[in-house]
Write a protein that binds this DNA or RNA. Structure first.
Lengths: 120, 120
DNA sequence: AAATAAGTAGGAAAAATTACTAATTATTGT
DNA sequence: ACAATAATTAGTAATTTTTCCTACTTATTT
């Protein structure tokens, strides 16, 4: 993967935020630095950054795919009211304080299923 | 919410599956019972069933929104190879066997954030 | 500086989801 | 059983989200 101003700007923009924006929100912000950037470029670079492990996808109900440049293990909190998504450290989940408003939680594990493992 | 054959069929169809289908997959199956059902009806009923708490959304990377009629607490496993989504009991997560293929996990908490709570 | 291969803008296309409207249907009271 | 009602639907259009394509541009290598 070679350098490009567009990818660098997408990455730095995302890194500077903690709101887990979706592609079109990132696009709006990148346009301020590179006015003629295209939405397709933003999507492509987000995908490549994900593949490189520099960015993670944040899949949340009733929302376009969101992105996160923080790659250490952490959970997300989604507000029923405004839909905002914020970070929660895994330690906080096991402790009781600071999570008063939580109504339910979802856990998704990613890996390779038995069938796919046996194919190789 | 009053009875309709369409909603009942959507619900029973989903309940009979453990593959966490998306709206268009459910649509295909419901069509076998109600040939002229419309995709919009499937979407609307899935939304209403979610609101009623009978169905849950399953948001997963690189996939349309999926649905699940199993409403007890459980986690999901997503295969990197084929993309299939299967159920995992929360007990199994804390134990070590049966989760060999897991590469990473995501936790999403849902609730009301401080700002939204203070507004009321 | 020339070659080359990856990356881009711009727009078209596809996929996913929501919204609209006239017709249909379940429910409620008679 | 029947008429009034309000919810629901089919069908379609529109919107949103995401991917794909192509000729042009740019970073990198030699």
């Amino acid at each position: 993967m070679r350098y490009s101003k567009q990818r660098e700007t997408v990455y730095q923009t995302l890194k500077s935020m903690c709101s887990h924006p979706d592609a079109s929100q990132i696009y709006q912000l990148v346009r301020e630095k590179i006015p003629n950037v295209s939405l397709g470029t933003v999507y492509r670079n987000l995908g490549e950054l994900c593949q490189a492990g520099l960015v993670h996808r944040v899949s949340v109900e009733n929302s376009a795919e969101r992105f996160d440049a923080r790659t250490d293990q952490h959970a997300h909190f989604v507000c029923h009211g405004c839909g905002c998504v914020s970070d929660v450290s895994l330690e906080d989940i096991t402790v009781q304080h600071g999570l008063d408003g939580v109504s339910h939680c979802k856990v998704v594990l990613y890996g390779t299923c038995d069938q796919c493992r046996n194919k190789k």
